[in-house]
């Protein structure tokens, strides 16, 4: 445990990995609470990075959680998206954690959509950079191959390598380094089992612990 995380106001945003009760909205959120941070978590199922910047609607639900209270999950289709500027205004974070990658990697498509991904990422990191808030971007885990999401280990690797160069000024946390390919079982190729979310959340929290001394702390 690193005392530098204690007292931080952490804003976590992410995709569907945050929108079910036992997912990161519980495991990562709890891990950071346990380290003494104040935590607000928001998830939007199916959302791309720019959906947090340009108002639209979510395709498969959204969720939020504040402090020790349990998550509120809204499965309504076409609910309005959360907007990063408003969340920052509300939470006043001194660290933002972004978990995103699976929705933008173009699983099942022959061509890797680099230009489009960069635009999405740049739109979101640009808003955060404009407010001078330190940020950490967490890439996707390996998942499983041969499922309805068409996720492949090769594309996850390609996406992680791409994000490592694209997310600055955010720091990048490469989730593929936390496990071997296929080591964390999934329920559908993309979403992990409870034990997987526990392991992923703990590994992200440990990475934040390591990065904490390098992140400029906002007053």
């Amino acid at each position: 445990m690193n005392a530098l995380l204690a007292g931080l106001a952490v804003l976590i945003i992410g995709d569907s990995h945050m929108v079910t009760r036992d997912y990161l909205i519980t495991t990562l959120h709890d891990d950071l609470l346990a380290q003494g941070a104040t935590v607000d978590t928001y998830g939007m199922c199916g959302a791309n990075a720019a959906d947090w910047v340009y108002p639209t609607t979510v395709s498969c639900g959204k969720a939020e959680r504040h402090g020790k209270v349990g998550p509120e999950i809204n499965r309504a289709a076409s609910a309005p998206t959360y907007q990063i500027d408003a969340l920052i205004e509300k939470s006043h974070p001194n660290l933002i954690v972004i978990e995103m990658g699976d929705t933008m990697a173009g699983y099942g498509q022959h061509d890797f959509p680099q230009g489009w991904i960069y635009q999405q990422v740049h739109a979101l990191t640009g808003r955060i950079a404009a407010k001078n808030i330190p940020c950490v971007w967490v890439g996707p885990p390996w998942g499983s191959e041969g499922t309805v999401f068409h996720k492949t280990f090769a594309r996850v690797k390609e996406m992680s390598e791409f994000l490592s160069n694209a997310v600055a000024p955010c720091r990048f946390v490469d989730s593929t380094q936390f496990s071997k390919e296929g080591e964390w079982p999934t329920i559908d190729g993309q979403h992990l089992t409870l034990s997987g979310y526990k392991a992923w959340g703990a590994d992200i929290a440990a990475s934040l612990d390591q990065l904490a001394p390098q992140l400029a702390r906002q007053p």
Binding site: Q114, I117, Y118, H122, N165, A168, P169
Partner: peptide
Amino acid sequence: VPSDFNAL
């Protein structure tokens, strides 16, 4: 078809 996207 650029492939040089780099935020640094």
